[in-house]
Structure formats: C-alpha cells, structure tokens
Design a protein around this nucleic acid. Structure first.
Length: 875
RNA sequence: GAGCGCGUAGCUCAGGGGGAGAGCGCUUGCUUGACACGCAAGAGGUCGCAGGUUCAAAUCCUGCCGUGCUCACCA
C-alpha cells in the first residue's frame, strides 16, 4: 500500500479545464499545418494524419452577399441611416466592420470543436487573392461565350431589390384564390356582348396581358381564334391566339398571357412575338401602365382591382385555390418575375462533364442515393443568373462604354473601351452571386490562378464533407468550375452528412428559435461529448435528432474513459520497469489474450467502417470496446493481480493495460481529441509515450501512429475461453440476484461439468470466477445439492445451494419458462432440419450451424430438466 | 405531379435472407479500493398492414397506410 503511486487525478472529468489548453497547444505546435508539397497523398481529418498522410483542411467562410447586406442595412437603420445615404465605399466599409465583429462565429465554433484545420490558411471569399480568382474566372468564361448579358425574365425579390437565381427561390404551399375574369369579345370592331372567361391567381397582372391563348383543338374557342378581346381597366385590345401548350382541362381552357410577369407566358410571348408590358417597378409598386392603380403596392392593387371588378361585373366568380408560391429564400418575400438586364452563365456545357465525372465515379457521392438527386438537377439545369443588384460582393469586372455602348471585360481595371478606345467608360455596378465565388473554393483557396505547389499537392482534394441542402448551390457548382478550370474533379469523394435537427425532428432555424448553439453544448458537456454524439448519430441517409439526454450519455462515456485511465495510472507503480514493454513477448494470461484479441478486432472494424464513411459504426464499436469489454471485464478480471503479490504478473498486466488503453485512446482520438490528449499527456509523464511515424516520441496523441491490426495478437482459444467464463460468471450473478444475496457476501456454488475439458477450463479460470462472482466453487461430480437454485451454461450445471427459505414455486416457474423458451427454439430447429429442401438447398455451413444449435439446445434443455426435477423434490 | 427516404422495445436509433440489438428510461439490489456522469441482475418487441418470391423474410419484390424531404411555370 505504501508504494501506491502519488497520482492526483480528479474523480470527474472536467472538459473546461483542458479543452482550450490543448487547442492552443496543437495550433502553436503547427500540428495541423500542411506541408506545401509532399510525396504523401493528401487527405483530411485527424485519422488520416495519424496514418501519416500530409493532411490539409482549409477553413474559411463565404461572404453571404444578400444575407449579410440585409443584416448590416438593418443595423444602419437603427442609426437612422439608409444604405443609399452612404456611398458604395462607405457602405462596404461598414460591412467589413460588421464582419470583423460578428463574422467569426462559425470559425469560433469550429475552433472550439477542435477542428484540425490549418488555421494559417484561413480564407474568406472576399479576400484579395480569392477575389482575383473570381475575376479571372469571370473574364475567361465571358471570353469563351459562357457568360452573357441579356434582357430576360428573372426571379426578383422586391424587398432585397435584387435578382435571384432559380435556387434562391423557395416554393411554399400557400392558400390563394382563383379569380375568373370576363374579357369582352370584339366583333366588327365593337364589343359583341359575349365574353371569354380566363382564370388567374393574380388578377392584378391583367393590365400586362398582351394576349389570351387557347388550345387550337378546343372546340369551345375554335371560332374566336384570331379575334380580339378588350382588356377592362386599361381598355387595350389584345388578340386571342392559339397555342398547343394550353391545357384544355385547366381553368376555363383560356389562358391570359402576361409575358412580362410570368415565366410560362414569357415563353409563349416569345413564340408569338407578343409585346411585353411591365406593370410594376422593382419595388413591387404598380407603374403608369397600371392606369388608375398606378402607385399601389402589388397586393393592395389586387384587393382593389378585385373589388372594382366585382362592382363592374368583370369578376365571374372566385374559388379557393392552393398553390406553390415562390418566395425569397432569404426574406420570404413573394418573388416577382421581372424583366431586367442581367448576367447569366451558360450552364449546359459545364454540366455535361460534371455529369460524366459522377457517372464514371471519378467523383463518388456517398451515400449513393444522392447521385440521383445530383443527376436530376444537372440534367435539367437552366442558365444561371449570376448578377445581384447589391453592393456587398464581387463587383462584376465589366465596363460599359458610353460612346459605343460596347462592353469591356477585364481582370484589371481598363483605361479605355477596348472597342472604340473611348475613356468614357463606367464599371458595372452589379455584384456576383455569392455561390459564383464559393464554386471556386477548392482551387481558389490554393492560390489559383497561380500554379502553386499547394495546387499540385492538394488538387483534386480527397473529400468534401457537406450537407445535402447545398448539393446544388455549392457541390454541383464546384464540380462545374473545378472541371472547367482545373481539368479535373475538385474532390474524389463527396460525403453527404446528416442534417442536425432538434429533438422533435424539426430543422433548426433562427426564425423558429429552436437552434441549439454548439458553443452552449460544449460549454455544458464538453466538445468531445458533442463530437462523439454527432459521430454516433451519423448514420447514413438519416437526419440527426440532437437531444440533451443523448449528449449527456456520451458525456458519461467520456467520464468513464477518464476513470478507466485514472485506474490504470493509479496502478502504475514500478514505472521504470514496465516502461515501453511490448506485451507480445510476455507470458500472457488468458484475459490478456482475450482483451488483445478484442482490441485488434476493434481496430479492424473501426478502420473498415471509416473507409466506408460509416461513422456511427465507428463510434459504437469504440464505445462497446472501452466500456463493455475493457472496463466491464478486463479491468475487473485483472484487479486481483494488481492487488496481489506476483510481481511478474503485475508488470505484465500493467504493460497490457497501458498498451490496450493507449491504443483505445488513439482510435478514439479523432473523435474525442481533447480528453485523449489530456490522458495521453499524463501517461507520458509516467514514461509511456507513443511514437510518431519517424520513430520519435510523440508530443501529442494527434501525431502518433494510428494502431494497426495485428494478427499475432489474435488468440482464438483464449478468446473463446473467457467468453465462456463470462457466461458462467453472469449465470452465478443471476442466481445470487434471484435469491437476493447481498453483493458483499461470498457464496459457495456447485458446478457440475460433464467432461474433463470443461472442468479444466473452469478450473484454470477459477480465480476469475471467485473474484467476479464472489463465489467459491465446489466441483462435486456425484452429489447434486438438495436445496438449490440452478443455471445452465451450455452443458454446465451451476447450483447455488440455499440455506434459508426461497420461494420454490417461483423458482420452478422461472425454470419452466426458460425450458419452454428452449423447447420453442428446438422445435423450430427440428422443423428446419427435418425439411429435405432445407438440407439440400441451404448452404452447408448454414445446415451445419443449425445442427450444432440443435445439439446445444437439446443439451441445455436436458440439463434444465434435471435442475427442475431436483428443485421439485425440495419441500 | 415526379423522385428519394423512413416506419424495429416507452423514447432515440443500429441491424438487414438462416438464433431480435444498443443507449436512455423503467424494475430490483448495491457507499464493491477507477467511476453514483457508477456497479450488478432483470422486465419489455405479431420488426406499420396485406400479398408474393424463397428450403428460409424483420431483411428481397408488389400494393396499401402513415410520415418526412427534394424537385416541378400548369392558369
């Protein structure tokens, strides 16, 4: 007792005391810094680093154009300032100031989580270098004709005051109304008194109608094709045209055409050369083309016009109608299709190679199910509107000439128009879609357009880990740009991880206020507990429901690891002697062999699962090994040795303990880096350092060599033996519980083995049974006990004699229940074995296994019946 | 409308043609020389419903019911 080492370790693991310390330790030591070039293949994450790869994780953020501008504008408004009160430069300065203050949240979260990014390479899409790449890409695409400018109908957010891409419009189920409007028919140049009725959800757009379309096959309208109707309110005459695209079943079969405010109508308008009448301005307010409604907001206008129509008899009827309304994904304002001059990317030529790359698995998408979603989008891709009418973002590098009206596109600011040499030029005020710049991330962050060493080393990257909701926004577009400008895919693997939802399964969002801030969780439970929870719940193809009880459970697991380590450390006396002893050469005990076998199988399973991105399996495997095998059994099996006098055995056990725990910590380290580092550093103080790839002692577990599966440490026989002994121990504990014996009382059990091998197996492990089941064993071959409860393990009968009274009836019931369970299984097994088809058609090993099972069950049944008979005789 | 996914213990979820699993919760007993954020022993399930394929189906197929998501210009 005197030489118990002076180990001072807290009973409960406190993440707060260690996490920040190790984070700055890792970063100061440059452990996450990637070599510019290396002969080692690159990959990300801690696991690969421990496997000796040159790893790089580039951290960074995009500038979130519209969202950020919106927030900053709101801040300014609190000061009574409108954006327009400032110059563009002043405003952008304000955005940068805001970004410096609040834009670090994500980075903070990442750092706190212990993300092993190379922080010296942190990038921001608005950085100078990255901006250069953006301009370069724009210019090249423009020169190739893949970017064009034109007057088209685009999705317009009247609140944000900018065009949006198709992806930035969210469709939402909305309750609306279907209004039936009567348009008077013109005959012989005057109103005939008859009408044609059209149905619309947007009656206010009628002022922009330039035709009514019907299906040429529609008998109802055949005779009025080519005639005219007169639009109420504006009194404009418009033709009735025929178009095959009109669905005769929908509405009235007559479709009002508003080319300037509806995408489908725009197409029909083009086909028939219809004029486009724009009836509202960019704020959604009706303009002079709206006649007496001019100046009204579009929704107010609708109310008013419906009211008027009702009075004037234009309105035939109104029906409730549910529709999918497009809304701005940033502010939920109803999007308005608007005619305007915008910049577009011609996407088809870029999509083609991106489709092929995934078809040929040059890039793999994991889980595979997402491939279809990717293909679906890529194959139906439409041109991408990339111009935004905001200030925060990459200003489009195009200059308009006021003399010749031509455009000059250039990376550097031009002095004069390249067409007429006029110096009277002005830069485009629009900026680019944020995603246009994010699309360049994989090469833009590595120094492109310069051909840097980093590009050569790390492009194509190994893996992108991301969420499905930006599969199109980001992944698809990185694919297009990567293939276009680097001639190769941006990443080999795309791992689509689960979306984290709240405990009710709802998507977290700021508006519904159910966001759990990871920083808060880490504050309460530690970063490792959060990391482990997310890993354990990361089953492929399923979202994560994050709830506090789950995190608490894994916090407890961290504490368990802490205490197991505490136990091992407290038992490391004679440090010098056991230091760095490889357990393989020692005279190992059966439990030693058993735990080493388990360890190696665990390592193998973990690595196999990692390769398949099955992170949940990785977590479960490690959890089971550390808690279920190492703590519950190995430590318990070994306690008597550590407390005993056999010095040799003690040293051997210490060596195995350290070896197994170290390896377990290593495979856990990529998931729980903080606690494993803390424990590792304490082990180092005792002289148990791990090695780096070049054979030096590792200053950090994060750079130690990941343990490898070792076939020489797999001991089948010892493994089976301990598994058997475990069953015996559980059986005895069960008997104790049934009878209600106090845990501290030692009992005597009678074990009746049928053959010598079994007897020897028990005998050899008697000590373990004694200490783990608090039982002494009496091998009485002849005499079965008079008064006892019993259990059967395989062909082994275990009796616990009873001194006092037990409820014999209850015990008989219990055994009978157990027997009937066995009988059921036997019957099932028998049925199979007597089925000729089964014998003939099932694989041999399955039949063999079934026979063995039948044997086992039969023996067990027989033994149980003996026990029952015995018990029944007790009065 | 099209596509994808999910219905397994009270809850959260693994598994995935040949003996129903884990964590939490629950019951019972424990200040056990690492840990009560713990230890030990238990209870708990026609694997959504109905057909089909197969020697064998919780697992594969079809349909249905429920549920979630993504995409789509249908008035």
């Amino acid at each position: 007792m005197e030489d118990v080492p002076k180990v001072e370790i807290e009973k409960v693991y406190e993440p707060k005391n260690v996490e920040d310390k190790w984070n700055s330790f890792w970063i100061d030591r440059n452990y996450f810094h990637a070599a510019k070039s290396s002969d080692k293949p690159p990959f990300t994450i801690r696991y690969k680093r421990m496997k000796g790869f040159n790893t790089l994780w580039v951290p960074g953020t995009d500038h979130a154009g519209i969202a950020t501008q919106t927030v900053v504008e709101r801040e300014l408004r609190k000061e009574g300032i409108q954006r327009q009160d400032l110059t563009r430069e002043e405003f952008i300065k304000r955005v940068w100031e805001w970004k410096e203050l609040y834009g670090k949240r994500i980075i903070e979260q990442l750092k706190k989580l212990g993300a092993s990014c190379d922080w010296s390479r942190e990038r921001f899409t608005m950085d100078e270098g990255f901006s250069l790449a953006v301009k370069e890409v724009f210019v090249r695409l423009y020169k190739e004709g893949l970017i064009y400018r034109g007057h088209y109908l685009v999705n317009w957010c009247p609140r944000c005051g900018t065009a949006l891409s198709d992806l930035e419009v969210a469709r939402e189920d909305t309750k609306g109304r279907l209004y039936y409007l009567k348009y008077p028919l013109i005959e012989d140049d005057k109103q005939s008194g008859s009408y044609i009725t059209v149905a619309t959800t947007r009656p206010e757009t009628m002022m922009g109608d330039t035709a009514v379309a019907v299906n040429p096959k529609d008998e109802r309208y055949k005779n009025i094709i080519g005639k005219e109707v007169v639009l109420p309110v504006v009194n404009r005459r418009i033709p009735v045209i025929a178009d095959e695209g009109v669905d005769m079943e929908m509405g009235t079969g007559a479709l009002k055409i508003t080319p300037a405010h509806d995408f489908a109508d725009f197409e029909i308008g083009n086909k028939h050369n219809l004029p486009r009448v724009q009836i509202m301005d960019f704020k959604g307010v009706m303009n002079e083309n709206a006649g007496r409604y001019s100046g009204l907001d579009r929704f107010k206008c609708r109310e008013k016009i419906v009211e008027d129509f009702e009075k004037e008899g234009v309105l035939n009827r109104v029906e409730d109608y549910s529709l999918q309304l497009g809304k701005c994904y940033r502010c939920s304002t109803v999007v308005e299709p608007m005619l305007s001059l915008q910049w577009f990317v011609r996407t088809k030529p870029l999509a083609e190679p991106s489709i092929q790359a995934v078809e040929s698995s040059k890039t793999r998408i994991i889980p595979e199910g997402w491939k279809n979603t990717y293909f679906e989008w890529m194959r139906n891709i439409r041109d991408w509107c990339i111009s935004r009418q905001i200030w925060w973002g990459h200003r489009i590098p195009a200059w308009f000439c006021k003399d010749c009206n031509q455009i000059t596109v250039s990376v550097d600011e031009p002095k004069a128009c390249e067409h007429c040499s006029s110096e009277n030029i002005e830069q485009e005020t629009d900026v680019l879609d944020t995603w246009f710049s994010s699309a360049l991330w994989p090469f833009g962050t590595l120094g492109w357009p310069e051909q840097t060493e980093e590009l050569k080393t790390f492009y194509p990257t190994s893996v992108l880990v991301t969420s499905f909701d930006i599969l199109f926004f980001w992944v698809a577009r990185m694919m297009m740009m990567g293939l276009k400008f680097m001639g190769d895919v941006p990443f080999r693997d795309v791992y689509i991880h689960a979306l984290v939802r709240d405990e009710k399964g709802e998507k977290m969002s700021k508006t519904s206020g159910n966001v759990i801030d990871p920083l808060d969780i880490m504050d309460d439970y530690g970063a490792d507990a959060l990391r482990f929870s997310l890993t354990a719940l990361a089953a492929q193809g399923r979202d994560i429901r994050l709830s506090l009880p789950v995190i608490e459970g894994y916090r407890n697991f961290m504490n368990k690891i802490w205490n197991a380590s505490r136990f091992v450390l407290m038992n490391l006396d004679n440090v010098g002697a056991t230091r760095r002893v490889a357990p393989t050469g020692l005279n190992l005990s059966t439990p030693d062999k058993w735990i080493l076998t388990k360890l190696n199988r665990t390592i193998k399973e973990v690595e196999d699962s990692l390769k398949l991105y099955e992170f949940d399996k990785v977590a479960r495997t490690i959890y089971q090994f550390i808690w279920g095998d190492f703590c519950d059994w190995y430590i318990e099996l070994v306690k008597p040795i550590l407390n005993g006098d056999d010095q040799e055995a003690k040293k051997r056990t210490q060596a195995v303990l350290v070896k197994v725990l170290s390896s377990a910590l290593q495979i856990l380290s990529p998931i729980a880096p903080f606690i494993t580092e803390e424990i590792y550093q304490r082990f180092r103080e005792f002289g148990f350092g791990l090695e780096t790839p070049d054979g030096k002692e590792a200053d950090s577990i994060a750079i130690s060599v990941y343990p490898a599966f070792n076939q020489n440490e797999v001991y089948e026989e010892a493994y089976g033996e301990i598994e058997f002994i475990k069953q015996v121990i559980v059986a005895i504990r069960n008997l104790r519980a049934v009878v209600g014996i106090h845990p501290s009382t030692t009992v005597k059990v009678i074990i009746i083995p049928d053959d010598k091998t079994v007897f020897e197996k028990i005998k050899a492990n008697e000590n373990y049974i004694i200490s783990l089941a608090k039982a002494s064993i009496d091998f009485s071959h002849e005499e079965k006990p008079k008064k006892a409860v019993a259990q059967v393990v395989e062909d082994l009968q275990i009796y616990l004699p009873i001194e006092g009274l037990i409820d014999v009836d209850k015990e008989v019931e219990r055994i009978k229940r157990e027997i009937s369970k066995i009988v059921k299984d036997i019957e099932l097994s028998e049925k199979k074995l007597s089925n000729q088809d089964f014998i003939n058609r099932a694989p041999e090993e399955v039949v063999e296994k079934e026979k063995e099972k039948f044997e086992e069950l039969s023996i067990k049944k027989q033994k149980m019946e003996e026990v029952l008979e015995k018990l029944s005789k007790v009065d």
